[in-house]
Amino acid sequence: MTARRASLMVTCLGDLFFPEVGVSIVRLLRKLGVAVDVPADQTCCGLPLFNSGYRGDAAAVARRTVALFKESEYVVVPSGSCAWMVKHEYPGLMADTAVGPEARELAARTHELSQFLVRVLGATEFTAAVPGRVTYHDSCHLLRGLHESESPRMLLGKLRGAELVPLPGADECCGFGGSFAVRLPEVSSQILAKKLANVESTGAGCLVACDAGCLMQMNGGLKRAKSRVRALHLAELLDGGR
C-alpha cells in the first residue's frame, strides 16, 4: 500500500528541541514518494497535561489538534508517546463531544514513524550507511502502549554498515516520564544512570530511540557524563546518520 500524502505532527519537543528530526522525516518520506505537508500552528498533543491529571485542559488542547489534522490522509508522529496519546486517549477525551467521531478518525489515521514506514508503507530497506555499532531503546509508550518492538529493530537491522547490538534491559524505562523527571529528579536520574550503564556495556556508539522525551533524558545524561555515545532518533539514522 502506498500513501500519497502524509501530514507531519512534529510535536512540541520535536519542534522546539529536535527540528533536525522533522527535517529527516520530511526527506525520508519524500524519497519514498510520499508528499509531506505540515499543518500550520501546531503546538502539542496535550499529553503533559493529560498525564498530570489536567484532563479538561488536555481535552481543550487535543480539540485544536483534531481540527488541525482534519484533512490529513495520514498523520505521522516521531514520538511513540504522542502517537499513543492521539490513538489511545483522544477518542476517550472527546467521546461525548461533537468532535468525538473526528477524534476517532484521527486516531485511526495517525501512526508513529517506524510503524508508518514498516506497517503502512511496507518500506524496510534503507541504504543510508551508518558506520559502527548501534543499539535500540524501547520507549515505554511505543512498546507497551502501541505494542511495537519489531519495526524499529527491523529498520536498523537492515541499515547498511550498521551493526545492531541488543541493549540489556532495553524494555526498561529511561526515567523520563514527563513531569516525573522534575518532580522526582533524584529517582528519575538513578533510573537513567542504570539505563546508561547498560548502554555503555554494549559498546555501541549510537543509541537509537523513537521518542523525543526519552532522547532528551538519555542525551542529557550522556552529555553530562561526557560519553562518546550519541542518542539519536531513528529518522536521523535512516536519513544518513547525521
Binding site: C140, R144, D171, E172, C173, G175, G178, R183, L184
Partner: peptide
C-alpha cells in the same frame, strides 16, 4: 500519585 513514570511495566 506522581511516584511513577507511567512506563506501564
Amino acid at each position: 500519585a506522581h511516584a511513577s513514570s507511567l512506563c506501564g511495566a
